[in-house]
Design a protein around this nucleic acid. Structure first.
Lengths: 236, 236
DNA sequence: GCGTATGTTTAGGTATGCCGAAATACTCCT
DNA sequence: AGGAGTATTTCGGCATACCTAAACATACGC
């Protein structure tokens, strides 16, 4: 019989879970194939296995959803991933853009004991280096009410609450411009079609402005701090 | 084509290397099968693969030896294993008898970058929690001149230099009796046929005596500190 | 409502790494 | 030297997880 310990099974479940963490619609077979970088036909086969294991629901030609057991496994894998990322950054000096791949490798091999001892050593962190919430051992997770940066009007102040980790180049760019978790931002202008966003980075006299568009905007979630009238911002 | 990244290949090479670390005779196919807990026929197949990869030498019905490339891989795996064990004990509060299995899982998945950063964080340790030497990144390893405890005469003082990690029960027993790395011992008597050894554990008035035999003696290597005449030892 | 594009599944095949059973080589003892 | 016993290899098979190509559904535009 198949087993929940297979790292493929874990990857499929984690990816299905991850898809619905920030949006509601369930994932389809081909989207799953893209995210896992496998052929569509491989997805069909593995998803059948997940159904057999009681981890997923799937009707022919329909979307794929997780059962409670699948959700629990997904949350456990996310917990592993995020705790490992936190460790790599806090204790081994990894930078943002490096952690994801290393965590991806490690999350399948460490034991539950390892994870719980790591959690204790890290002081039971509630979010990872990208701002993503870390589920508890029981699978409880808090949904931070972050919004997309481009949903804010000019003059709005905000604090970086989450940075998508699925594009290393974007992470590198942001790190290079001193944009990190909790960095204060001020939306100070909007380019053609509203697609380009000018933001002031940092507080006070040392702040700089940055043009953000496309992937960069999509990667940033912020916690709004309200509008801030009549501000002056130094230019880079 | 096959690859050096396969965790099976790594396990085979590490085991072949490990066999010759403390003795000279090369390993045979069936011994390898026992240590890896696989069937003899599996060994034949995998060893052929190692030969193809240029990692091992093997003539039909003969013993198995490593090529320089195989030796390098073996040392790299041992380095990984021992650095991970050191981390687990020093930073995550693992005990002696727990580390081995966890390290076994981790050593295949972490990257070289991870290992080198871990090494730096640990302060470039030269031996692991069992006293085994940790090879350098270039594959240099120091052979500590430890001797077996039962090669010492009565009245000999010694310091625990290495503890074999292949029997968790033995490790547990020793830890429970306050015998660890660098613990001073005094050989104070010898049982029937010389098979049972009485040793005094620790220095000064707080010392206790312990009867060691069989597996326990085999698991202990010590650095001799010369004879110590006319000592008195408290009994437990 | 029909055909075409897109999405999904089926069918057949590959690579890895393991197994047990049977055949074969080696070794040691007499 | 011959035969018993052990060690090793060969052979056919199994499980996992992937692939490509072809068949099949679904959905959308006209």
């Amino acid at each position: 019989m198949h087993s929940i310990d297979s790292s493929s099974v874990q990857d499929y479940v984690k990816t299905i879970y991850g898809f619905t963490e920030w949006q509601e619609t369930p994932i389809t077979a081909s989207q799953l194939a893209v995210r896992l970088a496998v052929a569509n036909s491989s997805v069909t086969g593995m998803v059948a296995k997940l159904v057999e294991l009681g981890l997923a629901r799937h009707e022919k030609y329909g979307p794929i959803t997780l059962t409670p057991a699948g959700l629990a496994l997904g949350l456990a894998m996310v917990r592993r991933h995020r705790l490992i990322e936190t460790f790599l950054v806090d204790h081994l000096g990894y930078s943002w853009d490096e952690v994801h791949d290393e965590a991806e490798l490690l999350e399948h091999s460490v034991s539950d004991t390892f994870i719980e001892r790591l959690d204790r050593k890290l002081g039971h962190p509630v979010r990872d280096p990208h701002g993503d919430p870390i589920p508890t051992p029981n699978g409880l997770i808090s949904r931070p009410d972050a919004v997309r940066l481009d949903s804010l009007d000019d003059g709005h102040r905000a604090r970086v609450a989450r940075i998508s980790d699925d594009n290393p180049a974007v992470l590198k760019f942001l790190a290079g411009h001193a944009v990190g978790l909790d960095t204060p931002l001020l939306v100070s202008g909007r380019g053609p079609f509203g697609a380009l966003l000018t933001v002031a980075v940092g507080d006070g006299p040392g702040s700089a402005t940055l043009q953000l568009g496309g992937e960069l905007v999509a990667a940033l979630w912020v916690e709004s701090l309200g509008t801030h009238e009549g501000c002056t911002v130094a230019t880079v």
